[in-house]
Design a protein around this nucleic acid. Structure first.
Lengths: 219, 219
DNA sequence: GGGACGCTTCGGTGCGGGCCGAAGCGTCCC
DNA sequence: GGGACGCTTCGGCCCGCACCGAAGCGTCCC
């Protein structure tokens, strides 16, 4: 009965409270950084690092290194399904939580902040609009006229890299990060064009924002 | 995220090689004794006893005490489904093994030995026939004419209890055990009326047995 | 370049638990 | 009753591992 050893192995990955808490947090479909998960589970960063390595090697999680960050996410829907079935077995209270999590996940996919810039479908919309306006190239490099456009919105070049590509985890395409992306995000918040919803990182484009983006030619 | 603790708990039950081997053996749907499982997994009887207690308390197994034996079986189809999904995740070789197990289980359900007597559908058929012949009552007590009938088949009363009811795990009804049941089973084997199939406890009624049972009025 | 930050590696600690053998108890056979 | 058998409890051993803090490395900001 050798095939039960594999079962014991994957069960062992989920048998730890901390690792289970990681997976539960990741059930929303987003990618979390190692530190976020460590804080969430209440363990030291070093402990979380080791747990994540085991979960990734076990095939439950996939990771994505970006700068000094380590993003992790569930390896796919099959992992989410496995967790769902086990949680369903463990307790009858899994259903309402799952509903809340999925609705929160949808809001997050529509729009969220990624550290200091916009991500999600909203971030992709912004990027597409900027590319269409010629502010940035398809590779997210700021053009000459793009810099003028940015300065009209109060952007001041600093020593920080003007633009960077940030891989969007839910959309699987890069969006605008760097100084320009951070500045735009800050301006959008200051002017009330975007606002946070819920308790997390989810954001939504306000009616005033929709009109302003149309006037700017973003949408 | 309190509901993930329950998940970690049930995962912990399956995270051990020995306990996983127990569950894998029980996936055939039969009830196993503690000793059988201990031998199967290669651990001491004391170790198996503790594991079984944990699995029963965790709700994965149900137990049934019968005399000095402790029968355990999966708590239900939902447990089997959980194990199937976890095994499917763990490895791609789960499917053929599952098939083998289920076919072996079918053979076992059709007929098997229960220590020294017949069980499964074959055991139920025998019991029904004996009741119809008036050899035993519906409560499996041997009647006066039944004792004569048994002696014609070579049965000799001993100090051992003549008849006992043994709960059939696959059929959920009692069948004939005790000295009479053991004697009949031995006679059937000696005369080639039943024979073993496969490597386990599965047995089948041979053609000669079918004819003999008809002549005796059992079927 | 300097400083902040996120992550990883490495010792070291402590607890949990899997395992066994021995002893004891209840059941069954003769 | 005597003996065999199955199971359980108990004590003890030991391995695994979850955890932390300190140190080091790479990245990012200014």
């Amino acid at each position: 009965m050798g095939f039960m050893e594999g079962l014991a192995q994957v069960a062992g990955l989920l048998a730890d409270r901390t690792r289970a808490a990681f997976c539960g947090a990741l059930l929303d479909g987003r990618a979390w950084t190692a530190r976020e998960l460590a804080v969430h589970a209440g363990v030291a960063a070093s402990t979380a690092s080791e747990h994540l390595t085991r979960l990734v090697e076990g095939g439950l999680l996939v990771e994505h290194r970006q700068g000094r960050h380590r993003y992790v996410a569930l390896a796919g829907p099959h992992v989410a399904e496995l967790l769902e079935s086990m949680a369903a077995f463990a307790g009858p209270d899994a259903r309402p939580r799952s509903l809340r999590a999925s609705s929160a996940s949808e809001a997050m996919a529509r729009g969220r902040t990624c550290y200091d810039h916009l991500a999600g479908q909203l971030g992709i919309t912004l990027k597409s609009g900027l590319v269409g306006l010629g502010v940035v190239t398809a590779e997210l490099a700021v053009t000459e006229p793009g810099m003028v456009w940015l300065k009209e919105l109060g952007f001041e070049p600093s020593q920080r890299q003007v633009s960077r590509a940030c891989l969007d985890w839910t959309e699987r395409v890069p969006h605008l990060a760097g100084a320009a992306g951070a500045h735009l995000c800050r301006v959008f918040f200051e002017r009330g064009w975007v606002r946070r919803i819920g308790s997390g990182r989810a954001v939504v484009l306000a009616p005033a924002g929709e009109q302003a983006w149309r006037e700017l030619g973003i949408v």
